[in-house]
């Protein structure tokens, strides 16, 4: 099984420790949410998993292999990352952007062959962007733009997808649309690790929650196991009641 193991990971910036001796295990085929208060290190952990950041200690193993010792291009065929604030370049069409997702598979000039075009068109159709494919990315609405980035990741054809706060800045309707898209990707067989701020959304859409606080794992398990008034008090200093979401049957918190 292709699972991801984080072992004794430490990451620090010169003036601050972010992650300290952190270990966890993420199983394949699930949607796992990283949650925790601001500055707890969840984004940093995600970036270490995507090999954007290099930890000072510890290792991250994908299928038993240390990702920090793998070739960048090889790894980019296994793990894709949607950063928190991706830069939308000017003068690039939606189709060109999605085509960049083929970079790990294509040649050094980045020109697409027939197979690539097919995969790109599929990704566009999957994200309902076929009609917008020739528009400039910078001309899209926030929700459309986020879908375009998802389409790029789809074209990358990786088994693992890491999403760093994909719903931030989006209107509520687009948030739901994006989370449903995330669930659809998961049903296709992709393993998803996502940083989310909204705990109720995390409970609704994710199979597993990992709670971080001050660079350490506070709790890990299903939403039912993890989201308790005690944990909310301990981790977020929040007094809250936990009820059952009438629609999804998952835990749902109400602050007092």
């Amino acid at each position: 099984m292709a699972h991801l193991d984080v072992k004794n990971l430490s990451f620090r910036y010169p003036e601050k420790n972010i992650l300290t001796d952190l270990s966890l295990h993420i199983a394949q085929g699930k949607i796992t949410a990283l949650i925790g208060p601001n500055g707890c290190g969840k984004s940093t952990l995600l970036k270490c998993m995507a090999r954007v950041l290099m930890p000072q200690q510890g290792e991250i193993l994908l299928q038993g292999e240390n990702i920090h010792q793998q070739n960048t291009r090889q790894l980019s065929r296994k793990i894709a990352l949607l950063p928190q604030a991706p830069i939308s370049p000017e003068g690039i069409s939606v189709k060109e952007l999605v085509g960049y997702g083929r970079a790990p598979w294509g040649n050094r000039w980045g020109r697409l062959n027939n197979t690539d075009h097919l995969i790109v068109n599929e990704a566009l159709a999957y994200t309902n962007l076929t009609d917008y494919q020739n528009q400039d990315v910078s001309a899209l609405s926030g929700g459309q733009r986020q879908r375009a980035w998802i389409a790029m990741i789809l074209a990358q054809q990786t088994d693992w997808v890491l999403l760093d706060e994909p719903t931030t800045w989006l209107d509520i309707s687009y948030q739901v649309e994006l989370l449903n898209l995330m669930r659809k990707l998961n049903q296709q067989g992709k393993t998803i690790v996502v940083v989310l701020h909204d705990l109720n959304q995390a409970c609704r859409y994710c199979d597993e929650l990992i709670v971080l606080k001050a660079g350490k794992v506070q709790a890990q398990g299903t939403p039912e196991e993890v989201l308790t008034p005690y944990l909310l008090k301990e981790t977020f200093s929040l007094t809250a009641e936990v009820h059952t979401d009438p629609i999804s049957g998952t835990p749902c918190l109400f602050a007092k």
Binding site: T72, I79, L81, P83, P86, Y100, G101
Partner: peptide, 17 residues
């Protein structure tokens, strides 16, 4: 082509190989 990808940001470029 690498420049095209770098324009998307370090994180995206790294994730694209």
């Amino acid at each position: 082509f690498k420049l095209d990808l770098l324009v998307l940001g370090d994180e995206t470029a790294q994730s694209l190989g």
